[in-house]
Design a binder for these strands. Structure first.
Lengths: 218, 218
DNA sequence: GAAAAGTGTAAAGAAATCGTAAAGATTTCA
DNA sequence: TGAAATCTTTACGATTTCTTTACACTTTTC
């Protein structure tokens, strides 16, 4: 689950944002001033920050330079164009003007949260191709028939190639389709998945990481 | 040098954009219709695409799904919000409304061109590297296979390099994975960890602090 | 200086995890 | 409704990891 920090001194807007984000399945953090924001960020590491500019104490412009490695979306009523450009050039990843359309805000959040270039329609790894549009997997141009659970598992593993994905993360990500999947049935699905891929190619793409989960190797 | 494709049937706006981008040091490509755009993209691979929506032939909405792996900024006079949100959710990386501020356009272009956030998280100490994403430890670029408990111990020690960490703190921090770990089994894990690191390098990174705990020395 | 407590390592036993197969349960679809 | 596909459960051997026990050694305490 992704965490988003809301930094806004306006309680109403903050509450509205918090409710909106939580409905979308995000976890939220709150801060109501610039100094509080910095304190919050010293203790937490959200995946994205919504930053208002007009804050008591340190304002948004002053907070921004202190934030590193986390995408910051400015959400502000300010319209000054040179200022806006400056913020975009100095670390903000986006700028949404109040009053904003919630749909657009959520869409822009999604864009900045999505793993690098996930407008990909195919995930490739050597001779293995997972087509996200066709919902199809092939090895050496030979189509491999996977069940939806196997497909979902392979997808999350390939989307995070070479990284270790915990069993719980996998279970979460397939819980929409397969809510009853347990640790041990996951084990079974992975075994079946491996078998199907192996039968075409002889390769085992999936590595078990003891006590943690699995890793897709490119 | 980065290349930007301008897909717009309006010659004036297209020329203006081209001049603007070239002044900023970008190379440019042009297309004046949807079909022409697809042809252009089959021969070239720009780093970013500026896409107008109202195009003759295939319009922008229809072109978008065919583009993979290249960030697409919609530049359009259309203001329909649901459409805007749909485009953002279906592959566009940004949406700028005509008439646009050139400064803002350039700033947004720069954002989407800037190198992917290297959310590579590593703890380094000399030749020892602990990669938090890969869940992997290496010494002198030689991978060292650790158990999850050994990894967890090394991680908390490296995160607090040069500071003394009490045995209880370590036990707490690994209690999620290894709840039954006691003082004396911790001793054993540290011994095993040291041995594995020592076998690559000969160095002992971990110092015991009498009666308290351990310290990782950089 | 001797007893008590702490540290470092090895080795063995206990426990957990992995990979697979087979069988039972559930869902899907004609 | 019945067959096929899919998912979950159970079982078991192989493997890995964790804990315990043992013992030599060092440091602290009295």
């Amino acid at each position: 689950m992704k965490t988003i920090a809301i930094i806004d001194d306006d309680i109403h807007i903050g509450n509205m944002l918090e409710e909106l984000l939580q409905q979308e399945g995000y976890a939220t953090l709150r801060a109501y001033s610039g100094t509080e924001a910095l304190f919050l960020l010293s203790r937490n590491e959200p995946d994205l920050i919504l930053l208002d500019l007009m804050l008591p104490g340190l304002n948004g412009e002053e907070v921004l330079p202190h934030i590193q490695d986390i995408p910051v979306m400015i959400v502000s009523a300010k319209m000054d164009m040179t200022n806006k450009v400056n913020l975009l050039l100095n670390g903000a990843c986006d700028y949404v003007t109040k009053p904003f359309d919630t749909g657009e805000l959520l869409a822009r959040i999604k864009i900045h949260l999505r793993p690098v270039r996930t407008n990909k329609k195919q995930l490739c790894a050597g001779d293995l191709v997972l087509d996200l549009n066709m919902h199809e997997v092939s090895v050496n141009h030979v189509s491999v028939k996977l069940t939806k659970t196997e497909y979902a598992i392979l997808k999350i593993l390939m989307q995070n190639a070479n990284q270790v994905i915990s069993k719980n993360t996998i279970l979460d990500s397939i819980s929409m389709d397969t809510p009853d999947c347990t640790d041990s049935s996951l084990k079974q699905h992975v075994s079946n998945l491996r078998k199907k891929l192996r039968e075409v190619n002889g390769t085992d793409y999936i590595e078990a990481v003891w006590g943690i989960g699995f890793r897709f190797i490119v």
